[in-house]
Computed example of a mutant assay.
Amino acid sequence: MELTVYLAGEIHSSWREEIKEKAHSLKLPITFVGPMENHDRSDLIGEEILGKQPGSVFRDEAASSINNLRTEVLLNKSDLVIALFGEKYKQWNTAMDASAALSLGKPLILIRPVELHHPLKELSRKANVTVENVDQAIKALSYIFEEL
Rank of each mutant, 00 (worst) to 15 (best):
R16L: 01
R16A: 00
E18C: 14
E18Q: 15
I19Q: 13
I19R: 11
E21R: 03
E21F: 07
K22W: 15
H24S: 15
H24Q: 14
S25Y: 02
K27I: 02
K27C: 09
L28M: 04
L28T: 11
P29H: 13
I30V: 08
V33G: 11
G34R: 02
P35T: 03
P35A: 02
M36D: 07
M36E: 07
E37G: 14
E37Y: 15
N38W: 09
N38M: 08
H39Q: 10
S42P: 01
I45D: 15
I45K: 14
G46W: 13
G46H: 11
E47A: 07
E48N: 12
L50G: 12
L50S: 10
G51Y: 09
G51T: 09
K52R: 01
P54K: 01
P54H: 03
G55D: 07
S56H: 12
S56P: 13
S56M: 15
S56W: 15
V57L: 05
V57K: 07
V57I: 02
V57Y: 05
V57F: 02
F58V: 00
R59K: 13
D60L: 08
D60N: 06
E61H: 10
A63D: 14
S64V: 05
I66Q: 11
N68H: 15
L69D: 08
L69N: 04
T71S: 09
E72I: 15
V73P: 01
L75R: 14
S78G: 10
S78I: 14
I82M: 04
L84C: 01
F85M: 02
E87G: 01
K88Q: 10
K88M: 08
K88E: 06
Q91G: 08
W92F: 06
W92G: 09
T94L: 08
A95T: 14
A95E: 11
M96L: 07
D97V: 15
S99H: 11
A101N: 06
S103C: 11
L104D: 02
G105D: 06
G105V: 02
P107Y: 13
L110K: 08
P113M: 04
V114S: 07
L116M: 01
L116C: 01
H118L: 00
P119G: 01
P119I: 00
L120A: 12
K121W: 06
L123S: 09
S124G: 01
S124V: 00
N128D: 06
N128C: 07
V129K: 08
T130I: 09
T130S: 12
Q136P: 09
I138E: 13
K139W: 10
